[in-house]
Design a protein around this nucleic acid. Structure first.
Lengths: 143, 143
DNA sequence: GGAATTTTGTTGATGTGTCAACAAATGCGT
DNA sequence: ACGCATTTGTTGACACATCAACAAAATTCC
């Protein structure tokens, strides 16, 4: 059962990523960054805040932002209030890309996943996700 | 809901991988290869058969086997019946490592995941996994 | 028997994720 | 005000995953 479940998740993720990349040229990681940026009022967030929303580690985020800056999706600026901080700001190109990509991606999530599940199944998935997350957090702090 | 679910899966996987690596020095990918090898009668399988069991693509498998041979977990031999084929064979060291690692890993999967779920929830998860997998296969062949 | 096609596996390039080591600014305790 | 721990982010090294291009053996089809 565990093996099947795992295969399902990996296949699902790779199908979604493939479709996203074909439609928009974005990777899943790009998308994950662009969504909170585009939702923020001025299209800019500190690395710190991005990490807060996504639970990524510093290193991963730093590498990802550098690569995305190279491709012109965003720019990195130093932060006014805190000289350590960096602010990632959407470029117009970045905003255009994410706004074009988002509807299709959301639809794909529905098509492959959400729409396959009954309301009760959806509910169970949510419960399970919460329980397992709680267990993981408990284990982390417990150690 | 989709975001929570996704975060749960990724946290779970990374917790399991971290524990596995600490206990045995194996990565999740190593483990995935070693299990079918150790279960096969003579501790050896063709790349082709490994791929059949795991749904990995050729390239991923080739790279992974090369790295694992370098570390002495297995050896690659050319295949007698089919000169194109390669056979991956567990070394004694490889067998020892997987046999030491397996019980702890299985226990970790129980501890973090299986044991958190009621029998009905387990059942729902299985149903959902099957449905989504079926949907993904349908989409692939349909295109 | 021989050419085209399919199957099987490799290699190199690039993107992604994690770890260890580092650097710089902040904040805290005294 | 000073010293030291904490917070924040970067870099380099390496494992992992995917893509495109390739090579070689087997199979199919004539």
């Amino acid at each position: 059962m565990w093996r099947t479940y795992r295969e399902m998740y990996r296949s699902l993720e790779s199908a979604l990523d493939r479709e996203l990349t074909q439609d928009s040229g974005l990777s899943g990681a790009d998308y994950a960054i662009l969504v909170p940026l585009s939702e923020s009022p001025d299209g800019a967030l500190r690395s710190r805040e991005l990490r807060g929303e996504m639970n990524w580690d510093r290193t991963r985020l730093a590498h990802q932002l550098r690569r995305m800056e190279e491709r012109g999706l965003l720019v990195r600026e130093s932060c006014a209030e805190d000289a350590r901080g960096m602010v990632a700001r959407l470029t117009p190109a970045g905003r255009e890309v994410i706004e074009k990509a988002a509807p299709g991606h959301v639809a794909a999530v529905r098509r492959f996943f959400i729409d396959q599940l009954s309301p009760e199944e959806l509910d169970t998935m949510r419960t399970v996700a919460d329980k397992v997350l709680a267990r993981l957090r408990e284990a982390e702090t417990g150690q």
